[in-house]
Amino acid sequence: MSFYDAVVPAYLQMLNSLTGLLTKAEAHCAAKKIDPAVLIGSRLFPDMLPFGKQIQLVSDFAAKGCARLTHTEVPSVPDTETTFAELKQRLAKTIDFVKSFKPEQFEGADAKDVTFPAGPDRSVTLKGQQFFSSVSLPNFYFHAATAHGILRHNGVEIGKRDFLGMN
């Protein structure tokens, strides 16, 4: 299996499943007459980031992960989304960005150095494989799972199949 085949499909599966989760969350709000801003601002615990920010971070980890691994320009996207439509649009743009990468861009990327920020005044350099498997992908899945958990906690009728993008 190529490094591209390990990276791109993993990001795309979850980005697409989150798009489906947003659709279900939006329908849930409409059916229960809940202000969508309430759900978008919901957290699992007061010191955790809200649902909307979880979606933004999933988007960032996918886009920036691909860019860093291929040594292409790392996108900078302002976090301005406040509606389901805007969050879906952000995911759609991220999906298009991730789909724009070609397998040859990932050739040898697993062994190349990847430098990334690790705080306000610090950066870390890892080999591509280690960056992907120890930093980018775990953070990507953490924020995706947290977004799913926030929706489930708030009564949106979703399960593991929705998380996996099988519904």
Rank of each mutant, 00 (worst) to 15 (best):
A145T: 13
R161T: 04
K160Y: 08
P9I: 01
Q56R: 04
M166N: 11
S42V: 06
G20A: 11
N16Q: 11
T146C: 07
A111N: 15
A37M: 08
Y141D: 10
K160A: 01
A111D: 15
Q54A: 00
L22D: 03
I150R: 01
P120C: 11
H28C: 01
P120R: 15
E86F: 03
D96N: 07
A67K: 07
V98P: 12
A62S: 08
P117L: 11
T146H: 03
F61N: 05
T94M: 12
S42D: 13
M48K: 08
C29T: 06
K53S: 05
T23D: 13
L91R: 01
A63M: 10
D60V: 07
A92F: 02
G128D: 15
T23P: 07
S133D: 07
A92M: 08
F142C: 04
T94R: 14
P46L: 00
S76A: 10
I34P: 07
D47Y: 00
F163D: 14
M14D: 01
I158Q: 05
H148G: 01
T146I: 14
A31T: 14
N167E: 11
V58T: 08
S133W: 06
H28I: 08
D110W: 10
Q105P: 11
L57W: 12
R161Q: 04
K102E: 09
H71R: 01
Q54L: 02
F3D: 11
R90F: 08
S100R: 05
K99I: 02
Q89R: 02
A25L: 14
A37Y: 06
P36K: 03
T125R: 01
L18I: 06
K33R: 04
L137M: 15
G119Q: 03
E73C: 00
G128K: 04
H28V: 05
Q56Y: 06
S17Y: 03
S123F: 13
E157S: 13
R43T: 02
P78L: 02
T146L: 15
A118S: 14
L87H: 10
K112E: 08
T83H: 00
A85H: 12
A145S: 14
K160H: 05
Q105R: 03
L69P: 09
A31D: 15
A63Y: 03
F51E: 09
R161D: 09
M166S: 13
S133A: 09
K160Q: 11
S59R: 05
T70F: 02
R68N: 10
D79P: 06
G128P: 11
T83N: 00
H143P: 06
R68F: 01
N16G: 09
R122G: 10
G155K: 10
D5M: 07
Y11W: 08
L18Y: 00
K127G: 04
K160R: 10
E81N: 01
S136R: 05
F51R: 06
F142E: 09
H153P: 05
M48W: 04
Q54T: 03
S59T: 12
G165R: 01
F61K: 03
S76M: 10
R122T: 10
P117A: 09
A62F: 12
T82S: 13
S123Q: 15
L15K: 01
T19L: 15
L164H: 04
F132M: 14
S42K: 03
L22S: 00
D162V: 07
L12Y: 14
Q129R: 13
A144L: 09
N16V: 06
V135C: 08
L12K: 08
D113Y: 04
T146W: 12
